[in-house]
Structure formats: structure tokens, C-alpha cells
């Protein structure tokens, strides 16, 4: 990231330096230090890491085959012998399915955000810095997308593209580009009018280096924080798409899809039926909390 690169430019201690002087650490070191002092964010971060590890090592952790069913053991309650978290409507082990389901759910929830972050920032920063007609063209196009509720847009796009994992990812990415571009544009417009941009111009900086150093440095933080808050939305939307049959298809385990197939069992085994929802809830809330912590940690002034 250009921000950390630019900060890395700060020259290393020169020999003239008094050794006793304590040097103030770099920007990201400071952010990490502040983040590590935030118990809520750290707990949430641990949860996310655990979820990621769970997803990565799913085949080794899961006690049973997630797709092997048993007609005799359908819809067993939590704690049924051999099925620690019960069994679903086809008698498959819920625990194993939840563990395996994390792979697709996390993939679908997390991937669209960084891609949309890159595209949205690019559009937004360009619009904000160049201004004028370029701004109008980009932002009005973005507004068209913005006019639709995000769920509706995601459903409409995946519906149009057809079901399937890739199409779901593409449509989710497209859903997140407009809000990120919006935030990027407004922050850039704000930063562009500030004195330090004028000051940089007054000391001879060219447009390219002003954008790279002074605009990006000030703009990426807020956009990044906003984007992390979108991960939880993305998780929920992705689950929603699968629930509607537009994302992953059975028998692949995926939390949203599991929620859908188990919904008929809501009266017979409500606890089991709610489990995928609990996973979605935990994951999205963890991402939200990390994003909140990051927001305050990245505020240099506090």
C-alpha cells in the first residue's frame, strides 16, 4: 500500500542522532498498538482468525463427511450421540457442515469487498480529484446503482448473470462499488480543498505525486475503514443470495443455503435450524467490531 510505503520513506536513524532520543514509531505501528489495546476489537479479531483457520483446515477438523447423509438420523437435536450439533434434514452432521460451510461463506462474504475497494476507490478518487465533467459522469453512473436497495441489486444482478459462485461474487462486487466510490469521492473532494494540497503545490509537487502521497495518504484510511464495515453486509448478502438459490447450490455446504434448506425444520428442530444463522451472526458482528476498532485506531489525533 502506498501509504505504508510513503511512511517507510522516513529515513532510518542517521549517525548524528542522539541515541537516547526515543523515536516516534511509524503510522501503522501506532495503529496496531492502539488496536491491540482495544479489548473488543482484539476479541473480534481472534474470532475472525479462528473462523478463518476453521475454514482453511475444515477437512481436518470436521468430525464427519459433510455430505454423507443418513435417512434414519434426520433432524436430530443438538447433543445426539455422534452428532454434537445435531443432524440436518438429510441426516448430515451439522457440526461438519457448519465447519465446511465456513469456507464458501467466508469466501463469498470477504472476497467482493477488497475487489470493490480497489475499483470503488479508483473511481471515487478520480472523480473527486479531477472534478468537473469527469466527476459528474462517474458519480451519476454510480448514483444509478445506488438508487437500488443493495439486496435488490445483488439479487437482480445474480439473477441476470445466472446462479453460481462466480456470478454471485461478481454481483456482490458490483453492489459494493457504488458505496465505496461515494465515500472515496466525498473524502477526496474534501481533502483536495485543504491547505496542505495547496501547500504541496506551492512547494512544487506535481499532480501525480500529490495524488499518490497526499491524497491517497489521507483518503485510503477512511475508505478502508468503511470497506471493512461492508464485510459483514457482504456476508449477509452472500448468505441471502445462497438462501434464494442464486449463489452456491446444494449439496455444497454454505451457511445461507443451509439456513434455506433447514427452514422447513424450524418447528421440529428450531435450535438446529438456527445454527447457520448463528454462524453468520457471529462472523458479521466480529467483522463489524474489528472495523469499529480500526476506525478509532486509525484516527491519529485521538
Amino acid at each position: 500500500m502506498s501509504l505504508s510505503a510513503a511512511i517507510g520513506q522516513t529515513p532510518s536513524p542517521s549517525p548524528v542522532v542522539d541515541a537516547a532520543v526515543v523515536r516516534s514509531p511509524g503510522y501503522w505501528t501506532g495503529v496496531l498498538r492502539r488496536l491491540s489495546r482495544d479489548p473488543v476489537a482484539m476479541t473480534a479479531l481472534v474470532v475472525i482468525v479462528l473462523l478463518l483457520l476453521m475454514a482453511i483446515f475444515a477437512p481436518y477438523i470436521a468430525p464427519a463427511d459433510p455430505s454423507k447423509g443418513s435417512m434414519l438420523r434426520r433432524l436430530k437435536p443438538i447433543g445426539f450421540p455422534g452428532y454434537p450439533l445435531g443432524a440436518d434434514e438429510l441426516g448430515r452432521d451439522m457440526l461438519s457442515r457448519l465447519i465446511h460451510g465456513g469456507r464458501l461463506s467466508l469466501l463469498m462474504g470477504v472476497t467482493p469487498v477488497p475487489i470493490a475497494f480497489v475499483i470503488g476507490s479508483l473511481l471515487g478518487i478520480t472523480a473527486g480529484y479531477v472534478g468537473g465533467l469527469t466527476n459528474t459522469l462517474i458519480m451519476r453512473t454510480v448514483d444509478v446503482f445506488y438508487a437500488f436497495p443493495s439486496v435488490l441489486l445483488a439479487v437482480a444482478l445474480s439473477g441476470a448473470l445466472g446462479a453460481g459462485l462466480t456470478n454471485a461474487l461478481v454481483s456482490l462486487t458490483l453492489v459494493f462499488v457504488p458505496p465505496i466510490a461515494r465515500v472515496a469521492e466525498s473524502v477526496t473532494t474534501q481533502v483536495r480543498g485543504l491547505d496542505y494540497i495547496d501547500a504541496a503545490r506551492a512547494s512544487g509537487a506535481k499532480a501525480g505525486s500529490i495524488i499518490r502521497v497526499h491524497v491517497l495518504g489521507n483518503v485510503l484510511g477512511p475508505i478502508f475503514v468503511y470497506a471493512t464495515s461492508l464485510v459483514s453486509v457482504s456476508m449477509i448478502l452472500a448468505s441471502g443470495l445462497s438462501f434464494l438459490g442464486l449463489g452456491v447450490r446444494p449439496p455444497e455446504p454454505e451457511w445461507g443455503l443451509m439456513l434455506n434448506t433447514l427452514r422447513t425444520a424450524i418447528y421440529t428442530q428450531p435450535m438446529v435450524a438456527a445454527l447457520p444463522g448463528v454462524m453468520i451472526f457471529i462472523t458479521s458482528i466480529a467483522f463489524n467490531m474489528v472495523s469499529d476498532g480500526l476506525r478509532s485506531a486509525m484516527d491519529v489525533k485521538s
Binding site: I7, Q9, Y196, A199, S203, G204, V213, G217, V300, K301
Partner: peptide
Amino acid sequence: ALDPVYTVGAQITEAIRR
């Protein structure tokens, strides 16, 4: 007039090296 996300030293060296 000073960029809030960089140290003042970094801003001065940036100008010099420009």
C-alpha cells in the same frame, strides 16, 4: 497546511527530494 498523516520530517524531506 501540513498533511496530518505524515510526520513533519517526512514532509520536509519530500519537498527537498522533489
